[in-house]
């Protein structure tokens, strides 16, 4: 019995080592945070339009349909990276994307969309960044998946890509659609 006490440090060390190995083996980036908004209703919002040709965004506009809400900015490098993929989603009509233009200059954002294309159904301007804070955004780009009741179901931080979409977002969309149909 007494000898077992001497095994204590070893056991404790092994447990610690396992906890050190786990995040490396799983390839986890500790900087990625889960959203506190999952399963919650989207917050109230009423954003002015970015473009003359498209409406701005209010809470009503985001209800009734499964959709993506994408926070972006013309000054944000990773947003450029994901933009091409957003265009492809738009083209394939898998799911509508609503854009929230985060703390941007209107002209810069317009020029950016003119240059790279516009994948959004509607675009609202979050001029002072308060809407983003209400959603729990901590860095653009961030993309939220909303169900038809206006509840947030998934959040992705960082640029979206085809592989991330297929692995993480598509299954959630499918499950949501199944619920709706069934």
């Amino acid at each position: 019995m007494r000898k077992l006490i001497y095994l204590g440090p070893l056991l404790f060390f092994i447990i610690t080592a396992v906890y050190f190995a786990l995040p490396i083996l799983k390839g986890k980036d500790p900087r990625i945070l889960p959203s506190a908004m999952i399963e919650k209703n989207i917050p109230d919002l009423n954003l002015p339009p970015l473009l003359e040709t498209k409406q701005g965004i209010d809470k009503q506009a985001l209800m009734g349909e499964i959709q993506l809400v994408n926070f972006f900015s013309s000054w944000c490098g990773p947003c450029r990276t994901e933009h091409d993929f957003l265009m492809r989603i738009n083209k394939s009509e898998i799911i509508p994307i609503y854009g929230i233009n985060y703390k941007d200059k209107q002209n810069a954002a317009k020029a950016w969309l003119l240059d790279l294309g516009d994948p959004y159904e509607r675009i609202g301007r979050d001029i002072d960044g308060r809407t983003a804070i209400d959603w729990g955004v901590y860095g653009v780009p961030e993309t939220y998946l909303i169900d038809k009741h206006g509840r947030i179901q998934y959040r992705h931080v960082g640029p979206l890509s085809e592989s991330i979409f297929k692995e993480k977002i598509s299954p959630v969309i499918k499950a949501l659609r199944k619920q709706t149909n069934g």
């Binding site: 506190a36 804070i133 901590y138």
Partner: peptide, 8 residues
Amino acid sequence: LIARYGDF
């Protein structure tokens, strides 16, 4: 703040 960003 917790409602938006969690305990983190």
